[in-house]
Amino acid sequence: MTESENRDYNEFIKGIWRDNPVFVQVLGMCPMLAVTNSAINAIAMGGATLFVLVGSSFLVAAFKKWIPKQVRISCFIIIIATFVTIADYTLLALVPVVHKELGAFIPLIVANCMILGRQEAFASKNTVRLAVMDALGMSTGFVIALFTLGAVREILGAGSLFGIDLFGAAWEPWVIMILPPGGFLTLGLILLVFNWMTQRKQMFMEKVAEAQRSDS
């Protein structure tokens, strides 16, 4: 692997685990809590966000030299809003049922701070290639987080996954899981597990380091 490929890989992979936009940065909470009541909604939302983020990062990185810093935020927002509108109309035309479920949350992608954050913190300072890798990694991390939440909530709240019945008619759905409180509960518990795992890993690494020190 050459050095530049290695760099690409690093920018991509960091968004999935180490800097995951949801589990680590705790960004994009509005769509995270609002539209994850089923796996399919979560995937659609994640897909729309991926499209917007990758598109915006590409354009911002490509035009960064021509955007004066005084109006950069306005320019980013114009670019993001354009992609959001395109995503909105495309979803409405192709999958009207999903669009109806997601409702106002598609236009609200424009206010997702993860997207503006990536433009300001990364795309406007890096090459097109790295910006796109970063955007791909971040939005994949976002999709994974949305899907995890959506799947847990749909399985418990409706006894199904992607609309396919998992447990038969006798299953008593946990109604709270598809209501807003269920989003908060599930997200809180997932963050708990995530932090616990990170902590365990850190403690393990420290132990290994100590053992190596005492060996030498």
């Binding site: 008593e172 946990w174 109604v175 709270i176 899981m177 209501l179 409180p181």
Partner: peptide, 10 residues
């Protein structure tokens, strides 16, 4: 409160 929101019928 959890039970009431989760299993409203029961």
């Amino acid at each position: 409160a959890f039970l009431l929101a989760t299993f409203p019928i029961a």
